[in-house]
Design a protein around this nucleic acid. Structure first.
Length: 406
RNA sequence: GCGUCGGUGGCAGAGUGGUCAAAUGCACAUGGCUGUAAACCAUGCGACUCCGGUCUUCGCAGGUUCGAAUCCUGCCCGGCGCA
């Protein structure tokens, strides 16, 4: 019997692992490869769901931890599930809260990149549950083998996530695709810790899967993805992929951090270990260069906060690279962000105008830049898909990158 | 005219004898954001620099002092009050 979420692969690119297809979900199909909008708190910051269709947004990913805190998963459930709650009728995903183990844990107060160019200083990542130690260290999340204890970043109150609790919350949120509860580690974690966290993530994956399959109703209308971890270590990544592949998830997420040099190689090897016919989602990665790498390694869907975060912060994507609209050179530039862009922002507004909005602190600035960026990324994946369909993926990639990286 | 308070870097505004090229905020400039703690963060913002410093700045002019944005004198300008 077919699972509620399944992938039909319709085209393959002969020179790489790239593939195109249709990801079917109870709330509709996603033409892959595709870029999912990030809607952490049931909103794609600055963009309403009424704008999605025009922008080519096929699906979104929300977050269990954030929606559990506000407004609470029960409210979302009463509102008809995360999609209906935010008035989006298409496919939805929810992240398990595993990323918050990192961002509110070792990552709290630090700036660490998911894709690192060079080795960063290793630091011990001792995980001991102790509120006082946590606050001393500026962490809001502490991991133990059973689960994770969080200090709410809203009011400091204490909360606890376990794989079972994450499933319960994600069932209530009702997305088409839910993710196993995992531990997203800091890129600074050393090998031993990475291994320990990966093994724990596998145990949690098993528990997440069991908890999901046990709930007949949820299991019938939601697919569950396991999450491959292992950090930047190839052997751990492969071990993780193999262990999870043996667990019969409906699809696979690939999480954590990578090193810039060997992300492609690692992703390809990971994807070779995963069941070919199942969908693969690369969590949280989304610079244009990275999308090409992911697609070439056989990734079907992506999500990333960058289009909206960069947009709010003034940075926009163009076919000739990224730039900041706040730059002085745009003060009198009455041309669109990108003449080749088909988004409503580029059809109507000039760089000089949007720069003025940014400089004035007007919220429309972030809205317009986010909308443009989001369209840029969805269009990029549309183009990539089209290139796989007509067998010109490599040419498209090379010509895009040549101009983009100028 | 008399009295009084005040004139500090693009603006606002600290400083009131040395630790002051001068707090802080804003503005400005540049850079960064990769499963959102983020409409955010970092750096710079007198000039030159061999990056250790050197030089010119706190209305203007003069003075006191080893040393002044800080004290004194005069002038100029502004606010307020009284004529």
């Amino acid at each position: 019997m077919k699972r509620p979420v399944n992938l039909e692969i319709t085209h393959r690119e002969p020179n790489s692992m790239a593939r195109a297809g249709v990801l079917r979900t109870p709330h509709g199909d996603i033409k892959t490869p595709a870029f999912m909008a990030v809607a952490t708190k049931a909103t794609t910051k600055g963009l309403g769901s009424f704008m999605y269709e025009d922008m080519g947004i096929q699906g979104l990913i929300a977050n269990a931890y954030h929606l559990y805190l506000t407004p609470g998963e029960k409210i979302v459930e009463k509102g008809g599930g995360v999609g209906k709650f935010m008035s989006f009728s298409g496919p939805t995903m929810t992240d398990s809260g595993g990323f918050q183990v990192f961002s509110l844990g070792d990552g709290f107060g630090k700036k660490v990149s998911k894709i690192t160019a060079e080795d960063i200083p290793r630091e011990a990542a001792i995980a001991v549950f102790d509120e006082d130690i946590a606050s001393q260290h500026g962490k809001l999340a502490i991991v133990d083998d059973e689960g994770v204890s969080f200090t709410s970043h809203h009011d400091g109150s204490l909360h606890r996530f376990t794989p079972e609790r994450s499933m319960e919350i994600q069932h209530a949120l009702g997305a088409d695709i839910i993710f196993a509860f995992d531990e997203c580690t800091s890129p600074a974690a050393d090998y031993d810790y990475q291994k320990e966290a990966m093994d724990r993530t596998h145990r949690w994956a098993k528990r997440s899967l069991a908890a999901h399959r046990q709930d007949i109703d949820a299991n019938d209308r939601q697919g569950i993805y396991g999450i491959v971890q292992g950090g930047r270590y190839e052997d751990l990544r492969l071990e993780s992929a193999r262990d999870l592949a043996a667990m019969d998830f409906d699809g696979y997420g690939i999480g954590g951090s990578f090193s810039k040099e060997d992300i492609l190689g690692i992703l390809e090897k990971v994807d070779k270990e995963l069941p070919d016919e199942k969908p693969r989602h690369l969590l949280g990665i989304g610079e244009p260069e990275d999308i090409f790498i992911g697609v070439a390694a056989g990734i079907d869907t992506f999500d990333c906060v960058l289009p909206t975060r960069n947009g709010r912060n003034g940075t926009v994507y163009t076919f000739s690279g990224k730039t900041s609209l706040e730059r002085a050179e745009y003060t009198e530039d009455f041309t669109p962000i990108d003449a080749e862009c088909d988004c409503f922002v580029c059809k109507r507004y000039t760089k000089a105008y949007i720069r003025h909005l940014f400089k004035s602190g007007e919220m429309l600035a972030g809205v317009l830049a986010s909308a443009h960026n989001m369209r840029f990324l969805t269009r990029l994946t549309e183009n990539i898909r089209a290139s796989i369909l007509d067998g010109t993926f490599e040419q498209y990639r090379d010509s895009f990158l040549k101009k983009y990286k100028k």
